[in-house]
Each structure stands twice: as C-alpha cells, then as structure tokens.
C-alpha cells in the first residue's frame, strides 16, 4: 500500500444554518491526489461539508461553525480576506452546470482574467489546455466564440470543469456533477474524473452508489449531519463496520 499525504482535514467541525445544525462533530482527513466520494441520503450534510472547503457557505447569511478546517495543514478560516485566494486553489463544479452566458472562450478565460492575466496569447494557451484537460477541446475548438449556453448538458458540465481547471487549483470539489446528465455524458465525466485524479485531489458528492464505487478511492458516508464512516471505497462497499452504512449501501433506506 502506498502511503498518501493528507491534503484536506476537518477537526471537530459543527456547522449551523441559523439555529439548525447541519454538521455534527465531523473530523476527517482526505488524502492527496485521490478521489473521495461523499454518499448519504438527501439533506445529510454532504454539500454543506463540501462547501466548507472553499468557504462557499460564507455567502449564505446567518451561518457559522466551530472547529477547524485545514488545507495543506493551514487553517482556512483564520484570515477573513483569504476566501478569494483559497477558491483559486480549491475549484468547484456544481450540480447544475452553470456556464456564464458568454462565449466558450470567455467562460474558460474568466478565472485567469480575474486573477490578472491579460495577454491574449497566454489566455489562448490556458483556454486550450483547460479544454483539453476537460476532454472538450475536440468538440468545441472550431466554435470558441459561440455562446456556451448552446452546448449540450454534458458539454456544459465539462466546460464548467475546464473553467475550474483554468485557475490551476490543487483541489476539485464536485457537487453531484453528473446527476442531471444522460448515461453517456455521465460516463464521460466519470472517465474524466479518473484522468484528473493524477493531478488533482477530488472530492465528489454523489447520489449514485455505483458511481461512488466506480470513480472513488475513498468513500465517506454521511447521515443526518454525522460522518458515519470513512474508509477505502472497496472496504466501505464490501465490509462496512457500521450497520447504518451497510443498510444504506444495500438499499435498505435512503
């Protein structure tokens, strides 16, 4: 067994939306350059957990948390102004693909431009590389100036992945990236995730058990805001320790 470094970590995190607690005493250590899947029934806190790592929960009024969230051993909630810097390092792909109503080129160039890259040739290079990494280049290279909203659902989601890659993150957070896609597009996204795993630490929320089993190295099972079990994916799916995990995986509830 190859030992891996811990990339992302949570220590005793509680999270609240106003008076409603969404995460209870969650501690976890997520390994570097691996795919970690988050499974569990709707409303169990998977997305909240995911959005802790790029501070996306901050934009919702009335939320707060206790405990520590760390990336590369550094606490990410200490400096209040660092969320933009943090999000440069921690990319995110959303459940519903959200291409900006701009051209394909402008979508991918959006992040680099925000971070101060102005030179056209440099932007072109970044756009091409990002689209290639997201396995979309061949399909769109002749129509980079066309509006991104005209792409198919699967293409849009890969565009969003390319857009996230364009700012050169270490980590990719994916919130059910394939839940709105047809099986063929889903397969493409899954293959892409396996490919990206070589260079990125990926955390993916999924409702699809088979998908979790197919794409991930590690799996975390959440239930009602608690992290019930976290282990190697094959262990979770074959010999889970907790009864709850087994019940969920075998489809007895959820």
């Amino acid at each position: 067994m190859v030992r891996t470094n811990v990339k992302m970590e949570m220590r005793a995190v509680n999270f609240y939306y106003g008076n409603t607690q969404a995460l209870f005493d969650v501690s976890i250590a997520i390994p570097e350059k691996r795919v970690t899947a988050l499974i569990g029934p709707s409303g169990c806190g998977k997305s909240t957990f995911l959005r802790m790592f790029n501070r996306m929960n901050d934009i919702i009024d009335g939320t707060n948390h206790t405990g520590e969230v760390m990336i590369d051993g550094e606490s990410i909630y200490q400096n209040n102004n660092s969320s933009a810097e943090l999000r440069k390092k921690v990319g995110m792909v959303f459940q519903k693909s959200n291409p900006f109503p701009k051209s394909i080129f402008e979508n991918v160039a959006y992040g680099p431009k925000i971070h101060g890259i102005k030179e056209r040739t440099q932007l072109q290079e970044i756009v091409e590389n990002s689209l290639k990494a997201a396995a979309l280049w061949e399909e769109v290279k002749d129509r980079l100036n066309k509006n991104a909203t005209n792409l198919s659902g699967g293409q849009q989601q890969r565009l969003c992945i390319a857009r996230a890659l364009a700012v050169e993150p270490d980590i990719l957070l994916m919130d059910e990236p394939a839940s709105a896609l047809d099986p063929k597009s889903t397969t493409r996204i899954e293959n892409l995730i396996s490919e990206l795993q070589k260079n990125y630490t990926i955390v993916i929320v999924t409702h699809n058990m088979q998908q979790a089993a197919r794409v991930s190295n590690y799996t975390a099972f959440f239930y009602e805001g608690h992290l019930v079990e976290f282990d190697k994916t094959n262990k979770i799916f074959t010999t889970p320790i907790k009864q709850q995990t087994e019940d969920y995986i075998t489809g007895r509830f959820g």
Binding site: M56, A84, K88, F94, Y110, G111, I114, C160, R163, A164
Partner: peptide
C-alpha cells in the same frame, strides 16, 4: 456562485 468559486 460560479464566479465566486473561481476566486472572484
């Protein structure tokens, strides 16, 4: 959200 998530 898409824009903020890119570090804007």
């Amino acid at each position: 959200e898409g824009s903020l998530a890119l570090g804007a």
